[in-house]
Write a protein that binds this DNA or RNA. Structure first.
Lengths: 227, 227
DNA sequence: GCCGGTGTTCGGCGGGGACCGAACCGTCGG
DNA sequence: CCGACGGTTCGGTCCCCGCCGAACACCGGC
């Protein structure tokens, strides 16, 4: 017995609005946003945004956290982020960069950025390739961790996270159109990379990352530094 | 540069209508339907269905084939089917069976059925488990084919299909709530199973399959026949 | 050529929902 | 206590779009 058409339609309807879609895409950076920020981002009145957020939270797409007078919302979980990414990949059409300012920002984001809670951009794709070349991941069919890879992740990121989230996930990169490493281990790797200063957030450019020399060595190996 | 909110919203809007969702879900059986059949299935006038189909074909979700006076439509490809399945899994809510007739049909479908172009139901889940137990698939992290598995698939299904479609894909089963085997090899396995008479279509119940004794042996091994 | 069946086009109706502004409520800070 | 600020509620407007029926176009068969 499949999903009912009604519930599928209702669910798709959540994203079938420009403002709500805009908010969800913004939240793909993995951070919590306030209602006002999202209103400004989507270009609608605060009242309108408030109603949209109530809908999305009610449907379980977002979770909220009240803090003083602020209402913070974020994506309800990695599954939601994954669904958004996949749907976005299928939707296909891209925004066209317009000003020089945005072109520069886009270039930084294309180089290295976060994708929800893992690495993306040229760096993210290179990391996946490097891990595969080093025999730590198996990409011959689907994506899986090799025994050597399990040891490596345990050594670098600490004990493997448990839970229902798949350890590795091939996440289609929006700029590279090739997969990068998502899943629980992808998230753990980003956490380690930030702690170890392999990558640093770029001030004023929320999702962008700057790669340090040590980071290039640790993440992609001695040879594969340049994109 | 992410997908634009507008294009994501537009795409989601395609499924955000009860009638269109109903048609797409019907088409998940992998067959081509005529416009009239889909109109009846969705419970709308032929004229309405015609408009919906024009929209879906125009957006690339469906492809059409004119044949005489009939207009056949089907899903544009496995990616679309996969996206529908994932979205449906996330949407969650299920239809409630209503009459005895449908309960019986549901029971057959829960036992063994096709899911677009591969095996599903208790059988599908059992096949995945059996292949993993025999060391032909690796499920410890994600889903991947082992070297032994590659040899087995080549022997049983012929040369491995090439192309961009991922060889194996964990497809969440609607009735079992556990993954079964999708992807190119999943499709090849169903093709073989039909050719070898391991499973037979059930007359009058489109997606249902009956498992033959040889099929149970070949697909799930000597021990794991009963559900 | 006529007829039945299938699909499409068009006009018109109706409902849902996205949006805003104004008023209001809470919280924080002086 | 008051003002500033973030968020919410409510009425009201507007428009989009899903739906139908009627008329029409097309194909196939007798």
């Amino acid at each position: 017995m499949p999903v009912s058409a009604a519930s599928l339609a209702r669910f798709a309807g959540l994203l079938a609005d420009r403002s709500r879609a805009s908010m969800c895409l913004a939240l793909l950076d993995g951070r919590a946003w306030t209602a006002g920020e999202l209103a400004r981002h989507a270009g609608v009145a605060r009242s309108t945004a408030s109603e949209h957020l109530t809908v999305l939270v009610g449907a379980g797409v977002l979770t909220e956290r009240r803090q003083g007078r602020a209402r913070y919302v974020e994506l309800a979980g990695p599954e939601v982020a994954a669904a958004l990414e996949d749907l976005g990949a299928l939707a296909g059409e891209r925004e066209r960069p317009t000003s020089l300012r945005t072109v520069r920002a886009d270039a930084r984001l294309a180089e290295a950025r976060t994708c929800y809670d893992h690495l993306a951009g040229r760096l993210g794709v290179a990391v996946l390739g490097s891990l595969a070349a080093r025999g730590l991941l198996d990409t011959t069919a689907g994506l899986a961790v090799t025994p050597a890879g399990r040891r490596w992740f345990a050594e670098v990121c600490g004990p493997a996270p448990s839970g229902s989230r798949p350890p590795v996930r091939a996440c289609l990169d929006w700029t590279e159109r090739r997969p990068h490493l998502g899943g629980a281990l992808g998230a753990a790797l980003l956490r380690t990379a930030l702690e170890e200063r392999w990558v640093m957030p770029v001030p004023g450019l929320p999702r962008a990352l700057a790669v340090t020399p040590e980071g290039a060595l640790a993440l992609t190996g001695p040879a594969a530094v340049a994109g």
